[in-house]
Every structure is written in structure tokens, then in C-alpha cells.
Simulated assay, not measured.
Amino acid sequence: MNSDLTEEEMRRALFGTPQPEEQVPAPLVTEPVEEVVLAKSVVAPTVNKKAAKAFRPRLRVTLRVGNEFEGKMTELIHEADTLSSLLAEQEAVKAARKKYKYVDVVSVKSM
């Protein structure tokens, strides 16, 4: 192999011959721009339409919570906006721990 190739010859070998791009000069337009000022903006009457709600994945986490060890437990339902049952469970337990000392996850169901 010949190692005495110039940079330009190497470029031609790798990428082929460059196609000349046609350069069209842009016409210079120096027309004065008229300033348009609206006297009063026109506002279309708004119609109260309920937008279609996009699908949001939701999971319902059912917890049994209480403040006494082996005492009275109440059922708490937490709704999480996620598809991951693990994240929904963690989010529900974290929210329940703010108010209750003992938290037990009963179920995680999709809505």
C-alpha cells in the first residue's frame, strides 16, 4: 500500500469527490416595513369544554395503619400516579409514616 498519500487524496478515497454546491445569491430586499398597529384586540368568546383527560396510570395501595403495637389498626387507601407497584408502595408507606407509627401494606391494585 502506498503511504505517500496526501490528505486530499485520503479524503477522496474515503468520502468520494465532493459535489459542488450551487450557490444562489440571496436577493437583497430593502423594502420599508410598514408598522401595523391594532386599535383593539379581538378576543374570541371562549367555550367551556372539558378537555379529554389523558390516560394516567394509577395504582391503589391499601394500607393498615396504627399508632399502637398490635393495637387498633385502620385501613388507609393511597392512590399513586405510577405504573410501578414498588414505587407506589414506597410512596404510600412514606406518606403514611408521617402520621402513623406502624404501617402494613395489604394490597397494590391498578385502577
Rank of each mutant, 00 (worst) to 15 (best):
residue 31 E to W: 02
residue 38 L to M: 10
residue 74 T to A: 09
residue 104 D to R: 06
residue 55 F to Q: 08
residue 93 V to C: 14
residue 95 A to P: 05
residue 32 P to G: 01
residue 9 E to M: 12
residue 19 Q to F: 11
residue 69 F to G: 01
residue 79 E to T: 14
residue 107 S to F: 04
residue 92 A to I: 06
residue 87 L to I: 00
residue 11 R to F: 08
residue 99 K to R: 09
residue 75 E to C: 01
residue 67 N to W: 07
residue 88 A to F: 07
residue 30 T to G: 10
residue 36 V to P: 02
residue 97 R to D: 14
residue 103 V to F: 03
residue 75 E to H: 02
residue 89 E to D: 01
residue 57 P to I: 00
residue 51 A to F: 09
residue 90 Q to W: 02
residue 40 K to T: 03
residue 47 V to K: 08
residue 74 T to W: 02
residue 15 F to W: 10
residue 23 Q to I: 15
residue 101 K to I: 08
residue 43 V to D: 11
residue 53 K to H: 05
residue 45 P to I: 00
residue 92 A to V: 06
residue 99 K to F: 11
residue 15 F to V: 12
residue 73 M to K: 13
residue 98 K to L: 10
residue 96 A to F: 09
residue 57 P to M: 00
residue 12 R to T: 15
residue 90 Q to G: 05
residue 94 K to Y: 03
residue 43 V to E: 09
residue 51 A to W: 13
residue 41 S to N: 14
residue 81 D to Q: 10
residue 57 P to A: 08
residue 64 R to D: 02
residue 12 R to C: 13
residue 59 L to Q: 15
residue 15 F to R: 00
residue 90 Q to Y: 03
residue 38 L to C: 08
residue 91 E to R: 09
residue 107 S to M: 03
residue 104 D to L: 14
residue 62 T to N: 07
residue 64 R to L: 07
residue 77 I to A: 08
